[in-house]
Simulated scan of single mutants.
Amino acid sequence: MSDSIKTIWLDVDPGHDDATAIMLAINLPNIHLLGISTTHGNASSYHTAINAARCILAFGGAQLGIKVYPGASKPLLLQAKHDPEIHGPDGLGGVEGLPAVDDSAVLAMIAKDEEGETVRALDGMAQHIKQTWKNGAGRKVTVVSCGPLTNLALFISVYPELVDAVDQFVFMGGGVGLGNRSAVAEFNILCDPHAAQIVLDAPVPAVMIPINITHTAIVTRDIHRRLLSPSPIPDSLPDTKSSLPAASTPLRHTLSTLISFFADSYKSTFGFNDGPPLHDALTIAYVAHPELFTKTQRYRVDVELSGVHTIGETVVDVWDYRGCGDDSWASDGKNCIVTQSLDVVKFFDIFLHCVSWCDTRSPLNK
């Protein structure tokens, strides 16, 4: 396998924006996706596993042998919380065209062992990462998280001998002085702050894609229009530019309904009038095209674990008050690369090109 191809494991809690991350992970040419684990978060662990399976089928991942490995149903210490206000009660509210939750093909996407028992996230991660690493003779794996970090924290704790097989942890979550589900805490970190601290303390490079950046990746009406139909609208028809065209394929219709529901949620809850942010897709974009992130900086990052008003806050030591002279990626060093800016135009060009490629392989279009 070429060195330009990145081997990844993807951990998600679908979730509308998680679905777009799955689509990119399956269809970007320089990403080799080993498998998908799911966790509590945007919806219950039952729904997130089923939703991931539905997305794998819709986006052409079944033909690649990608399976879903259900994981943690609750945080390490806290009570589980979900976000139906943003994602609907099942995590993919309003999305049309996906396979039904009880479709036999969907259920077949859940990984099973030889006895027909479900293979859980920890076992799936360990098996695939160990086989890929081959005790140092193979390739390291980038582990990507789009939800609460519970599965990753458990993997680090249960399989410490495999931590060396991880190239980096890339996670969407946190904020620099910004929150979205409390005054200072972002939802993924707020759901399981203790797990996030374990990941940040692991002796592996961590990359944080905070909401400061994801809030710039807005699916505007123009991008939504290009998503529905790749054909340009002639300037001679100005009235049509104020409305959305019909979807040119069933896949594009499904993605459009996903964006529309997400847009309505973000408008009513957060006042986003120009469109919804495509948070989780940026994790895959970072792995595939790190050059899109035009400014990054390595900092000491910790998670507030006990504050009455601040639990879940990612504390980014911008001014180096900790004075971390340790160059390691462990608990005493500058442990996290924090992304700070994004080439939004190029990101959406890549995203829309990936949709066009997915059009050629999606079973939704058959």
Rank of each mutant, 00 (worst) to 15 (best):
E115W: 11
N51Y: 05
T132A: 02
A111H: 01
P70Y: 12
I156H: 06
D102Y: 08
D113F: 13
A52P: 11
A153I: 09
H40W: 06
G136N: 03
L78P: 00
L154T: 05
A121Y: 00
A43H: 06
D83N: 13
G93A: 09
P70Q: 10
I129A: 03
A105R: 03
D123T: 14
L33N: 06
C55N: 13
R139P: 01
G138W: 01
L34V: 03
L152N: 07
A111I: 14
L107C: 05
C55V: 13
I129S: 00
A100F: 12
L154E: 09
N51V: 12
P148G: 00
P84I: 14
N135F: 04
Y46A: 11
A58G: 13
Q63K: 15
Y46L: 08
F155H: 08
A53Y: 07
A80W: 02
G136W: 01
T150Q: 02
P75S: 07
S45G: 14
G41C: 08
G71I: 09
L149H: 09
D103V: 07
Q131T: 10
F155G: 08
P70N: 10
L149M: 15
A100G: 15
S37Y: 01
P148Y: 02
L107T: 03
K140F: 05
C146E: 02
S157T: 15
N151M: 01
N51T: 11
K130M: 02
A62F: 03
N135L: 06
A100C: 04
I36Q: 03
E115C: 12
T48I: 12
L77P: 00
V141D: 01
K81W: 02
L107M: 12
L152R: 00
C55P: 09
S157L: 09
G88P: 05
T39D: 01
Y46N: 11
F59M: 05
A111L: 07
V68T: 07
V106N: 03
L57M: 13
I156W: 02
G147Q: 00
G124M: 06
G147M: 08
L77D: 04
L78S: 14
I110E: 04
L98T: 14
D113T: 13
L149A: 14
D103W: 03
V106W: 04
N42M: 15
I86C: 10
R54H: 11
S104F: 01
T39A: 12
E115L: 14
V106C: 04
W133Y: 15
E96L: 12
I66C: 08
D123N: 09
H128K: 11
I86D: 05
T38S: 07
D103N: 07
V101K: 08
T39W: 00
A58S: 14
I66M: 10
H32Q: 10
P84H: 13
L57P: 04
G94N: 15
L107I: 13
W133I: 04
V119G: 02
D102M: 11
H87Q: 11
S73I: 05
